[in-house]
Computed example of a mutant assay.
Amino acid sequence: MKSLRRQLPPLTALTVFEAASRLLSFTRAAEEIGVTQAAVSRQIHLLEQDLGCPLFTRLHRRVALTEKGKALSAATSDAFNLVAETIADLRKDGASTELTISATVAFTHFWLVPRISQFSRSHPHINLRIVTQDDMPNLKRGEVDVAIRFGNGMWPDGHAEALFEDEVFPVCSPEYARTAGRINMPADLVSCPLISNETDDPMWTGWNEWLSAFSVVVPKKTPGFRCSFYTEAIYAALNGQGIALGWTHLVEDLLKQGRLVRLTNAAIKPRGAYFVVVPTRQHNKEAARLFLEWLNIASQQTTARSSG
């Protein structure tokens, strides 16, 4: 049986083909690689001879991939990207110990940043970079080492492990609670200004879903305060604008500090949970392994406190 290396065409031809198939232009491929267009045409011709099939259809002033060309293009693109990502990881490990973490604005602000100094004190040689955005970055691009996400754990770009589930309940400032009157049941909330935030996340629990869980019909016209982000909603509640929905692990510190208070004993569990996600093709990076160990311990401590 031939070795894998002997079954492959020359690497030069594959490199040229990858550029030409990605750019769909022999001229642009030549400019990118730094050779002549004739050299690109020659390498493609040799590759087609080797494989015994055409990879491109030559059209007027342009080229198009054949079906077999498309298959080889997908394979070479994946293979070259994997090699590039692995080399980038190796260079990063050799040059520095930077670790890039992605999380939502709310999770970063209320949970991660208040605790991340514990990790930094234990591992001062690791330079942390936190990418804060509510849109999930695609881990296949190799720009993020670890992502913390809320959802069902089913993401195609990485391997997910559960951190903790959550509970959602109404919260407000102590000053607002003193002036709001008696609020003992979910139905008592509809006459108060309810603070909400905009989101496209189907897993997110808003006021309509929360109140419906207790068979409370929300009137068409209710006092309220609407924000763009969850962090803004919590700060509005801190400043006495009304009542927001608190997520256990996001408002835990604010409740402990007495800056927010919980209203009623009513709570619901959202449909999703928090997960830590690592890229499917993650290079075995020591900094990422250490961060995952710390994150699991920190999440277990958080769960124990909320259960207690």
Rank of each mutant, 00 (worst) to 15 (best):
L4E: 15
R5T: 13
P9Y: 03
P9K: 10
T15P: 00
T15L: 08
L24C: 08
E32S: 12
Q37A: 09
R42H: 13
R42S: 03
H45A: 12
E48V: 06
L51P: 07
G52D: 01
P54M: 00
F56S: 04
L59G: 07
R61L: 09
A64V: 13
A71M: 04
A74R: 13
D78L: 14
A79Q: 06
A84V: 05
E85W: 11
A88H: 01
R91N: 14
K92M: 08
A95W: 09
T97K: 05
E98H: 02
S102K: 03
A103P: 01
A106H: 04
A106E: 13
F110E: 06
P114L: 06
N127Y: 08
N127M: 11
I130M: 01
Q133R: 10
D135M: 12
L139D: 01
K140L: 14
R141F: 11
G142I: 09
V144T: 07
D145Y: 02
V146A: 02
V146G: 03
G151I: 12
M154A: 15
H159I: 15
A160Y: 03
F164I: 01
E167Q: 11
E167D: 04
V168Y: 07
V168H: 03
F169S: 07
F169R: 02
P170Q: 11
P170G: 04
C172K: 01
S173P: 14
S173Y: 05
E175A: 15
Y176W: 15
M185I: 03
N197D: 07
D201I: 01
P202R: 11
T205Q: 05
G206A: 12
L211T: 10
S212A: 15
S215D: 15
V218C: 04
P219T: 03
K221P: 04
P223E: 05
P223C: 07
Y230V: 02
A233F: 10
Q241V: 02
G246A: 05
W247R: 06
W247H: 09
K256M: 11
Q257G: 12
L260C: 15
V261N: 08
L263D: 04
A266R: 06
A267I: 08
A267R: 15
I268A: 12
A273N: 10
Y274K: 00
V277T: 15
R281I: 12
A288G: 06
L292T: 02
E293Y: 02
W294L: 11
S299T: 09
T303S: 12
R305P: 02
